[in-house]
């Protein structure tokens, strides 16, 4: 059952993967729960979570690929991946 909240905000959960975990607050394992105004985009979420705007991230919203201008909804599960890989 969805949470009941005032229409003045939405709450999303953000998980940072791989190299991006360096951006988590000290001691925080994630995911982060972030409250935003309705109509907020992924770019707004990045700013709110202190992810630098020029950071190279792949965005997932509820399992599908998203973009920086994707508009978020209440209860969205958002994931950011960095392109880090290797050997």
């Amino acid at each position: 059952m969805p949470h009941t909240r005032a229409n003045s905000s939405i709450v999303v959960r953000l998980t940072l993967f791989a190299d991006l975990r360096r951006l988590l607050p000290n001691g925080h394992e994630g995911p982060l729960t972030i409250t935003l105004p309705p109509g907020s985009t992924v770019a707004d979420l990045m700013a709110s979570a202190s992810v630098p705007p020029d950071e190279d991230v792949t965005i997932g919203i509820n399992g599908d690929q998203g973009a920086r201008d994707s508009v978020l909804a209440d209860d969205d599960e958002v994931v950011f991946f960095s392109p880090m890989e290797g050997g």
């Binding site: 993967f17 791989a18 360096r22 792949t58 997932g60 991946f81 392109p83 880090m84």
Partner: peptide, 24 residues
Amino acid sequence: VDQVHRGFHEYGTGGAMQGKSLDG
């Protein structure tokens, strides 16, 4: 380590595969 190499430290390589798949 936490600021610079945290991803490698926690997962090693392969922690970004879901992103790669999302990216096609």
